[in-house]
Amino acid sequence: MKKIGVPRGMLYYENFPFWKDYFNEIGYEIVVSKKTNKDILDNGILNSVDEACLPVKIIHGHVDYLKDKVDYIFVPRVVSLYKREYCCPKILGLPEMIKNSIEDLPEIIDTIFDLDKRSGLESGYRDVGKYLNVSNKESSKAYKKAYSQKEKYNDWIRAELLPMNYKFRPNNINILVLGHSYNVFDDYINMGILDKLSKRNINIYTAEDLSSEHIRKFSSYTKKRLFWTHGRRIVGAANYYIMNKEIDGIIFLSSFGCGLDSVLTHMVSRQSTIYEVPFMNLTLDEQTGEAGINTRLEAFLDMMKWRDKDKSYISTFR
């Protein structure tokens, strides 16, 4: 069986269960790169432009890891996931960055997914199939199978990405962990922040828990149309949880140098201030140290506990 490599970075965190079922269905074996580690990061830094953000460097490392182990590497060119919306310029140009930065690559499957211009995901998958000489009919069948179960993605997150032994406990502190899915779920990038929260019996909320209807509704309050699909998700989730008073605090995991985050952290922190929800932004890059993160996290949680205890007391003074 021929092998298709999937780098464990960026859009992996949004799509992997679907990709896996699709490729298996059309008869290919999937090879996922290892979890991010120091080697992968170092190779990523070596094989990408200095100015790139951490997630982009890391995915370069994953591709480099896979390149002599597989027949193809799947790096789709995801331009748009919704009408009149786009992804980050670096996601738009990801296949090019990779192809121009890493040498001796196997064939890259860089199918365009552009839902602004075309009708749907299905036609994108047909194009993927074309690379592998799979008929449209077969492709559509595999696509339908892959996307038949709605809960699949969230089940996968629970099983694979949330900390082991994580349990939701009513009456505990609830924290919304925001950011690009690859910052929230790659525990090497974020120094195991979810683990740290779980060990302290804190309930973890993420944007991925929400339905896209909720996201759309709660992200439409901005004065200008937010044209980044991933930005909408973050702003929509923040608004939803803040306005429904479901959370006690927000931790935003942002990438150093990320253009989207520069806009999104501003919007979310403003909203948090208005509704008096504690907000902390942790900026991640290759220099981020775990000690610093721990200190900031402790301080943030202390503040929240203090708030919690004195909630009724404070409110009379507001």
């Binding site: 960055m97 121009n100 520069s262």
Partner: peptide
């Protein structure tokens, strides 16, 4: 000329090399 952190120009830079 690349203004620091400019997303499209960073993509362009990695291609310009080739």
């Amino acid at each position: 000329i690349l203004p620091l952190n400019c997303m499209p120009e960073i993509v362009a830079k990695s291609i310009l090399k080739n």
